[in-house]
Amino acid sequence: MKVLVAVKRVVDYNVKVRPKADGSDVDIANVKMSINPFCEIAVEEAVRLKEKGVVSEIVAVSMGPKQCQEQIRTALALGADRGIQVETDAELQPLAVAKCLKAIVEKEEPQLVILGKQSIDGDNNQTGQMLAALTGMGQGTFASEVNVEEGSVKVTREIDGGLQTVELQLPAVVTTDLRLNEPRYASLPNIMKAKKKPLDVTNPDELGVDIAPRTKTLKVEPPAERQAGIKVGDVAELVEKLKNEAKVI
């Protein structure tokens, strides 16, 4: 069966992002960009399913400016077979991303679509659920285990109270959580090979999708800063401060 994996280009998780001084936007000029860590887990899961013989083809999709081809190449180096870029320089919101993915799903007819549970820039945690809604598929979000069976997939999900397992009819949408797997590193030969793998470019117009934003960011600002605290000398002083100064115990 075929798997579609969505990979997003985001600011690297080691970068501490700050708002611009005028509060109009975040300042991400010249910062390191990477594949969203949850998307990397999604690619790894697809590759493992292929290694197990469950999956025959992995298609990696990314939406955004030309540079997001780098993240598609990363996915190809990790083991995806081909890439699709939906090129646009416009701001993409999760509803628009989900609509573009739906159009691609209709063309490619994958049995499984794997996405990250959230991207570490927007922190929305929406796209997979919205794609599932638009395609009428079942959704296994925040997955820590994925088992493909005959015509269905069992997904174990990380939920607030512990773990939950659901069974979804195929085709289905899965979004990855941190414990699903530990992604491999791409080897140099695979990075070289990835450069020759096919990568098709399309755009929202060709897909017939209206990506006009529905929300507007009016301003961005830094969060309230915490007052720098003090160092205490020992446990006795700590307990005394918590009792008499902070009055929290």
Partner: peptide, 23 residues
């Protein structure tokens, strides 16, 4: 914005053709 809410709400929003606002 619990795991139950995060799982369900974006799906409902998409059915209504709405871009939800998280968290």
């Amino acid at each position: 914005a619990t795991t139950t809410g995060k799982n369900m709400l974006p799906r409902a929003a998409a059915l209504l053709d709405v871009q939800p606002i998280s968290d």
